[in-house]
Amino acid sequence: MRRKIPLIITFIIGVVLVTGYFVTRGPFNTLYESFSDYFAIITVFAFILGGGSLLKIHLKRVSNRSTDWPYSVVTLAGFLVTLVIGLFKVGNPDGMGGEILAAGSWLRFLFDGVYNPLSATMFSLLAFFVASASYRAFRARTKEATILLSAAMVILLGRTPVGAWLTAWMPEILGFLELPNLANWIMAWPNTAGQRAIMIGIALGVIATSLRIILGIERNYLGRRE
């Protein structure tokens, strides 16, 4: 029961959703519509599961006084305060019936004042590391690395006005070699070719894996056997 029922559920859902793509009427289509809607609803519970797991892990860290446990208190405080404000619409000028991120609401304040800078700055750190990595690791050691490096330099310069300025002296007949034109050409043709080869490869992989999952051959998602 622990493994067979999930396999049956996967098979039914998978077959209905694949068939519904091709058959646009009849009972299959009704099920297709419903399962598609249910799928979206169930994924919301994944957020709740994520929050629950976070709570469980950090409560454990605090109760065990694990290394750096005071920071777990920060996580728990941030989580619980935001959750209470969000779920009960605390401070929402329109009350429980108002829009969740209504102007002036406390959740909006948390989003704009706390979530926004934390999220944006965390990702902006990458600008520094990408520059440092470029200096330290981006070496023309081999022919392939040289091609990669050259393409990157053309794009870096060609996508800014500096590229146009650097190659403005070129005669009109060699206009296609001007950095902005070269950068656009790389994006439109060799980049498209490479990305398309990757895309086709991924598509074949996804198709094969999906088929294996629906037919119950691929079972890793069920975890270890108990």
């Binding site: 979206a40 920071y71 996580t75 989580f79 959750l83 969000g86 934390l118």
Partner: peptide, 23 residues
């Protein structure tokens, strides 16, 4: 570390609240 841990907590709760009210 303080900011990083705060981010984790706030973001998880924010996603839950939006998912709950909007969906």
């Amino acid at each position: 570390k303080f900011a990083e841990h705060l981010f984790v907590g706030v973001s998880a709760a924010y996603l839950m609240a939006i998912g709950f009210w909007d969906h």
